[in-house]
Design a protein around this nucleic acid. Structure first.
Lengths: 207, 207
DNA sequence: TTACATACATACATGCATGTTTGTTTAATT
DNA sequence: AATTAAACAAACATGCATGTATGTATGTAA
């Protein structure tokens, strides 16, 4: 049974991406061979090399297929919003946490990014997307933090960029440790308390 | 020039470990071959397989040679201390940050742990040491947090374990992001502000 | 001084991952 | 209906990484 219709080919492609996502997330990128991906998808390596140039191209397609949580965050931040900037930041961080916890695709991708690939070369598409998306998001959040400072919601002694970098680091660290051992603590409740604690610490003393 | 004295052999072993640490940190563990390590140390693979069984054994020796920051932290926490528990926690976190920023060996090892190896199998010694050391440290810190709550230094509404997990996640995330791009922000100043902000958020409202 | 062990270098054997090429079947095109 | 081209499978060629086995020179001890 070879050669099929156009829709079947797309199905094969999706199954290849699904298999790659699963295997990469389970066994690591460099420890998963193209043959293993093909077998998991029920085809041979010929199918992979028909749809993708090589392993990097496959990874690139993987990254293109999903929207990282940080992408959603940037989009929503770009929209006009109501309410104070701190609440917006808080809601977005919790949204990221929830997405990683509940959406399997997001969880697998973030797991690959944090634990299942080596940051060996800046040229890897997986790292470029990760960093560029994050940096763009941070830049917009810094503007939000500035606004919050003007409204007196953040103590003037704090540096806006540091505030945002720390908030992102907190979220990253929570996901990092939770994905290491998902039974060690509950992600959503811990993140909720952690983010609120941190944001509470940002408030001016008299507020 | 083959065969040398006993001290020379130890020197060779150290040079092999140095080369491995550097190459692993630069190019990633799975992207560095035994041959590359040997060449960087000025010997052949024969020397490696004389001193170490295989790559895992080499990594294991790497981990044995250094003390992770979290190891020091646990040791100091075990000692009798003076002052309030919050200050102790704060000092220890800042000490970790400083060690990662200033000590090249620590920085290389943490870089390997966070970015240059894949968490592929729990049997890897590199992961076992990382996780066991961290868990033991967290356990002791939870006791500290409990004490701080008794002393009214932490708001009663907070869960001690969550507090500690979040603090560790914050530190982890800061190191994670700083090691990704060391020019993007200054680690020590950002960490100082971040940790103080978080700890301030832990205080009871009226304090 | 001889005998042995140490500290490597060198050579070999094996296997696996990759990339490419070729073949085959079937849908799409005319 | 005939031709083309897509969607794979299968075979091939290559290279690299590992592990092991052997060789060899030197320190060391009896």
């Amino acid at each position: 049974m070879v050669r099929r219709t156009k829709e079947d080919a797309l199905t094969t492609r999706q199954e290849l991406l699904d298999a790659a996502e699963r295997l990469f997330s389970e066994k690591g990128v460099s420890n998963t061979s193209m043959n293993q991906v093909a077998e998991a998808a029920g085809v041979t390596r010929g199918a992979i090399y028909h749809h993708f140039e090589n392993k990097l191209d496959l990874i690139d397609a993987l990254m293109e297929r999903v929207r990282l949580p940080v992408d959603d965050m940037r989009d929503e931040l770009a929209q006009t919003y109501h309410g104070d900037p701190i609440s917006l930041l808080r809601a977005r961080c919790l949204h990221i946490i929830g997405q990683v916890q509940d959406d399997p695709h997001t969880q697998a991708l973030v797991n690959i990014l944090l634990h299942k690939c080596e940051y060996v070369d800046d040229a890897l598409p997986i790292h470029l997307r990760h960093l560029s998306g994050r940096n763009a998001c941070i830049t917009e959040c810094i503007a939000l933090a500035d606004k919050a400072k003007q409204q007196g919601l953040i103590d003037e002694k704090y540096d806006s960029k540091s505030c945002v970098v720390a908030l992102f680091s907190l979220v990253d660290g929570l996901m990092y440790n939770w994905l290491l051992d998902r039974d060690y603590f509950d992600l959503s409740t811990t993140a909720l308390q952690a983010i609120d604690t941190y944001l509470a610490g940002l408030k001016p003393r008299g507020a």
